[in-house]
C-alpha cells in the first residue's frame, strides 16, 4: 500500500498527538476516525489543504468556546471536522448520520453486555 497510495506518513503529520515514538491514540475510536479521514483523502474525496482548513476551523471554534486544547480533545475536533467535511462534500447527509447514530444506540441497548454489537439488517 505504501507504494501506490497518497496516505501521508507519520512524519508528514507533525501536529498529531504523539510521544517520543510517534503518534498516539488513546482510544480505539480515535484511530478509526483518523484512518477514515486518511482513506477518504487517499480516495480523492478532498485535498489535504481542504482537510487541514476544516480541522483548523474546528480547533479554533473549540478554543474560542474555552477549550484549553491540551491535546486530550484533539480527536474530538478531528471527528467533528470529519463529519463536517463528509457533509460538505456530499458523501453523507446530516440525516444519514443522525439516523445511523440512533440505530447504533438502539442496537447497543438491545445487546447483552460483552457480545458484539450488530446493526439489524434493516439498518
Amino acid at each position: 500500500m505504501a507504494n501506490r497510495s497518497n496516505i501521508p506518513t507519520p512524519e508528514e503529520l507533525p501536529s498529531l498527538p504523539r510521544d517520543e515514538d510517534g503518534p498516539v491514540f488513546r482510544e480505539p475510536w480515535e484511530a478509526q476516525a483518523f484512518a477514515m479521514t486518511l482513506k477518504l483523502y487517499d480516495g480523492g474525496h478532498f485535498t489535504w489543504p481542504e482537510w487541514a482548513e476544516c480541522l483548523a476551523l474546528e480547533i479554533t471554534d473549540a478554543q474560542d468556546s474555552g477549550d484549553p486544547d491540551l491535546g486530550d480533545t484533539y480527536y474530538l475536533h478531528w471527528l467533528k471536522a470529519l463529519e463536517r467535511i463528509v457533509m460538505q462534500k456530499g458523501l453523507l447527509s446530516e440525516g444519514d448520520l443522525v439516523r445511523r447514530k440512533n440505530a447504533w444506540d438502539k442496537a447497543a441497548h438491545a445487546t447483552p453486555h460483552g457480545e458484539p454489537i450488530l446493526l439489524p439488517a434493516d439498518g
Binding site: 474530538l76 470529519l82 453523507l92 440505530a103 447504533w104 444506540d105
Partner: peptide, 27 residues
C-alpha cells in the same frame, strides 16, 4: 451496565460514519 451494552456518544458517531462510509464503498 450489566444487562446491556452502552456506547458513548463519540463511539456512536464514529460507528455511524464508519458503517455508512463502508456501505457506500468509500472506506
Amino acid at each position: 451496565e450489566h444487562d446491556h451494552s452502552h456506547l458513548s456518544d463519540t463511539d456512536l458517531r464514529v460507528r455511524a460514519l464508519e458503517s455508512l462510509l463502508t456501505e457506500k464503498g468509500l472506506v
